[in-house]
Amino acid sequence: MLRRTFLLIVFISLGFGTYAQKPMNIGYVDMEYILENVPEYQQASTQLDQRVEDWQIEIEQKRNEIAEMKSSLENERALLTPELIEEREEEIAYQQEQATEYEQKRFGPKGDYMIQKRQLIKPIQDQVFAAVQEIAETRNFDFIFDRNAESGMLFAKNRFDLSDQVLRSINRAANRRQIETKQEELELERAEARTAEEDEELSAREQAIQNRKNEREALIEERRRKQDSIKEARQKKFEERRERILRERQEKRDSIQAARTKKDTIN
């Protein structure tokens, strides 16, 4: 990494020397940030994580089986002949070798995880590279770096961060593929004509509208809960009153019946 950092510094210094009369235009992108905000990547990443979890479960099962084989051999060793012990040990060694090969097949440097990870990232990288090239050409950037690469970039001001612009370019390309009507095409053209600052202002306005909507919905929900609470209290009071009346009526009937029974007994 130090060698790469040194070469980068030399390269940029030579650039400054060659273009001494022209200020250099440098920007950077945050690849991790971009990947986190591309829905297609997140969906595919979730699917890959599920495969990884399944592979890990299979590996753990193989390890448990081998551990059980070892434990069984130790418990039965005194009862086995040397030939049987050797045969069991060879079987355990074979199963360990198979488990190691399977783990390498899934998680080794050339394993399924690395292959599928590269396959997952490559389409997004291609979109990022195309967007970066477009931005570099339209805005005359001399250098655009990946913040997360081993470039020795220890600090960079936010105003040089082009990640959101790259995301805008990727999203626009995705939106173009989804256009079905002329109205959608016109709306996309208006959206593409907006600057990043205008997009931020529009997003802030939309967020403010959404916040007010959420506040209204919360207020309506609170009023509904209060009304439900009042209704429940009234219903409870009505049920209690009804039960009391029924109880009093039953007690009166029981009292009359008891008096009649007593009178009949005396007669």
Rank of each mutant, 00 (worst) to 15 (best):
R260H: 09
T81A: 06
D161K: 01
N37V: 02
R205A: 15
G111L: 07
Q235I: 13
I124Q: 05
R205S: 14
E32D: 15
A174I: 09
Q98H: 01
A20I: 07
A44H: 02
Y113H: 11
E232I: 08
I26L: 11
A44S: 12
P39I: 01
E87H: 04
I124W: 06
A131E: 05
A218W: 12
N64G: 11
Q127N: 13
R194P: 02
Q95I: 03
V38F: 03
R190T: 00
K62W: 02
R216L: 15
K122F: 11
E180G: 00
Q227L: 11
A44M: 05
Q21V: 07
E198N: 13
Q127A: 12
V132Q: 01
A136V: 04
Y94L: 14
Q257N: 14
S203N: 09
Q47P: 00
Q235M: 13
I92G: 07
Q250H: 10
L186G: 03
Y19N: 11
T265A: 14
R212G: 13
V166S: 08
E180T: 02
N158A: 10
K226Q: 15
L35I: 03
Q227K: 10
E201D: 11
E150T: 03
A130L: 02
Q42C: 03
Q119Y: 03
E192K: 02
K236I: 13
Q56A: 12
F6T: 11
Q165A: 09
D161A: 08
S169G: 05
K231P: 00
I57M: 14
A196E: 14
F145D: 00
L188G: 00
V52F: 11
I266H: 08
A67M: 09
I230H: 06
E103H: 00
K157Y: 12
F11D: 15
L8S: 08
F160E: 07
S45L: 08
T261V: 04
Q183T: 00
K231R: 10
E134K: 06
A191P: 00
M69T: 02
D228R: 13
G15T: 01
I135D: 05
T100A: 14
K157A: 12
E185W: 01
E221Y: 09
S13Y: 05
L188Q: 00
A208S: 10
F155M: 10
S151N: 14
N37Y: 00
W55A: 03
G108C: 04
E221G: 10
Q227A: 14
P123Q: 09
E40P: 04
A173W: 05
D161V: 03
E83R: 06
A233W: 07
F16G: 04
M31A: 13
S45F: 09
N75H: 09
E32W: 07
R223K: 10
L73C: 10
R234G: 08
E217D: 11
T100Y: 10
M69N: 05
E221L: 12
E68F: 08
L35D: 04
A130H: 01
R247F: 07
Y33H: 12
Q56W: 05
K231T: 06
I92P: 09
F107P: 00
I59D: 13
V128K: 02
K122I: 09
A136E: 06
V38H: 06
E53Q: 15
I9E: 14
